[in-house]
């Protein structure tokens, strides 16, 4: 078994903390994990890409070979489209519906949504709204963990446990909001 996820978003959107929850959960379940991140210049409001690889065997490459990923998990609508060549046939694209507009030539939203909807296996999540309903827009990335969770080779309980541990030092309320956000995303 191997499960490769391309994580996409814009610098500052919490892509790495999203990745960390899934990675730690997979490790808790005894899987091998590699997570390749982007630091430095690219983080300044630019497109960010992380590779998360889960397997029950040894993982050699830190980078996912193109044509082999099972999922693109994106915090941002446009960024969901940037790395499609990494996907294997039959893979999933799970993306937040919300645009992050910091470039002058950002596409028309309706057009963008229809392109994403046209992808086989696409799931578009109204993540910011769900996070707000759960109690904080800052939990948007946990909505996305929830949205991805039913496809991941990791149990729901393990993900929830890791969310609890990760946010514990911020208090019970923050933990509850993030767990709620996760459940909302899981649907």
């Amino acid at each position: 078994m191997k499960y490769d996820i391309v994580l996409a978003g814009v610098g500052g959107q919490g892509v790495l903390s999203l990745s960390a929850i899934i990675a730690s959960s997979a490790m808790r379940e005894g899987l091998e994990v590699k997570q390749s991140e982007v630091h430095g210049m690219a983080q300044r409001g630019g497109a960010v890409l992380a590779h998360l690889r889960l397997s029950d065997k040894r993982i050699h490459s830190d980078l996912i070979p193109k044509g082999t990923a099972q999922m693109i998990l994106s915090m941002e609508l446009l960024e969901a489209l940037r790395y499609l060549d990494f996907l294997s046939p039959g893979a999933r694209v799970v993306t937040a519906q919300n645009p992050f507009i910091n470039i002058p030539d950002y596409p028309e939203l309706d057009q963008l949504i229809s392109v994403v909807k046209g992808l086989p296996g696409a799931i578009i999540v109204d993540a910011e709204k769900m996070a707000k309903e759960a109690g904080s827009v800052r939990a948007t990335n946990m909505v996305m963990v929830g949205a991805a969770s039913s496809f991941l080779p990791v149990k729901r309980e393990t993900l929830l446990a890791l969310i609890e541990e990760t946010f514990a030092r911020k208090g019970e309320k923050v933990v509850e909001i993030n767990k709620k956000a996760f459940e909302a995303g899981r649907g």
Partner: peptide, 30 residues
């Protein structure tokens, strides 16, 4: 990258989904 090594060893690129007909704007750091 895995692709570069793959091509050098003479293997064809793996199939990936049909490319979309949509021009993606770049998002450089700012």
């Amino acid at each position: 990258s895995p692709e570069v090594v793959r091509a050098a060893l003479g293997f064809e690129a793996l199939p990936s989904p049909e490319p979309i007909q949509f021009k993606l704007p770049t998002r450089p750091p700012q």
